[in-house]
């Protein structure tokens, strides 16, 4: 099992300034999954609990001179502490930039190694960041879990494939920071959040507790997938009656998710996506948030980067 690559400048920027800070908010540890073509960071895909998230990069988006080999069809997966990884990348990037003045080849190499840590008899696996300057080399070792077994990797791969299913209707989320402000305040009022999405481009989020219900409604959002025109007679109704009518018509769906999960998923704005879409998976099995990234300076989707989250529903079947 071997993995060795050089992080490109853009790769360092993507990880250090955008993705790792966002992934750090989603959960303490994640799986890093490396294949011949992709590198992915996965939260909770194997254990089934909590918020699932998948951040996937085509290898050119992060690396050059990418070499991977394993007996498992050149796939390697392991668990890592996101904040440690973030610190190592940040620190290695600083060393890398700092030594650039001498004109030497100061690329940032990343590789999997086994080392014998002090006071240990067994060698342990590490993800190593190595920066070579003219006079010195700086090495950061990030401890990782034992590489996942062949069955676990297969499990991860199939979880990743099922996670790619798109909801039939996706609505474009309003300003994420504003939504986050609102949801942060909702956290004080209740634990579960009702999320309603319709083919008319409605997104309705609501917490309801014994003494209070508080909700925000966004209308006329952009719709991807199945869409429909909102019936004119519904225009002046309250948000609740509009959502229940469209659910009866089969034009809308609602699920209940944890406010905490919803707030966490909004932390993905740290990865600076260009837009985000919400959708409910068929049979209301989960709430999906898909973040879209554009090729800089254009409005074309950057297909080399993808990020999405799936929020488990609290009360399956009620939709």
């Amino acid at each position: 099992m071997k993995f060795k690559a050089f992080l490109t400048d853009n790769g360092v920027y993507l990880l250090e300034k955008r993705f790792l800070p966002a992934l750090d908010k989603l959960g303490k540890t994640c799986h890093v999954y490396l294949t011949r073509d992709h590198a992915a960071f996965l939260h909770n895909l194997l254990n089934g609990h909590g918020l699932h998230s998948v951040a996937q990069f085509r290898r050119e988006a992060l690396f050059d001179d990418y070499r991977i080999s394993s007996q498992n069809d050149d796939r390697i997966a392991f668990a890592v502490d996101v904040s440690l990884l973030n610190r190592a990348v940040r620190s290695a990037a600083t060393v890398c930039c700092g030594s650039s003045s001498d004109g030497s080849n100061n690329r940032l190499q990343i590789k999997l190694v086994k080392k014998l840590p002090p006071n240990c008899t067994q060698p342990m696996p590490f993800l190593t960041f190595e920066t070579r300057g003219y006079k010195s080399a700086v090495i950061h070792d990030v401890p990782i879990s034992k590489p996942l077994s062949k069955t676990q990797v297969l499990e991860l791969q199939s979880a990743l494939e099922t996670a790619q299913d798109l909801p039939q209707t996706l609505v474009q989320a309003p300003d994420l920071v504003q939504l986050q402000n609102f949801v942060d305040r909702m956290k004080y009022l209740g634990d579960s959040l009702n999320v309603f999405i319709s083919k008319y481009g409605d997104l309705h989020v609501e917490v309801s507790a014994t003494l209070i219900s508080l909700g925000a409604e966004f209308r006329k959002l952009m719709v991807i997938g199945e869409k429909a025109d909102a019936p004119a007679e519904d225009q002046n109704l309250s948000a609740q009656s509009r959502s229940s009518r469209s659910i009866l018509r089969g034009d809308g769906q609602s699920v209940q998710v944890s406010v905490k999960h919803f707030a966490k998923s909004l932390q993905c704005h740290l990865a600076k996506p260009d837009c985000a879409f919400y959708g409910i998976a068929p049979q209301g099995s989960c709430l999906t948030v898909i973040f879209q990234f554009f090729i800089p300076g254009t409005h074309q989707t950057d297909k080399s980067i993808s990020l999405h989250c799936r929020l488990p529903v609290l009360d399956p079947g009620s939709s």
Binding site: I212, S213, L214, G215, A216, E217, F218, R219, K220, A239
Partner: peptide, 11 residues
């Protein structure tokens, strides 16, 4: 705004 609104009910 008509297209984005917040509603609450307090018992």
């Amino acid at each position: 705004s008509m297209d984005a609104s917040i509603c609450a009910e307090i018992r």
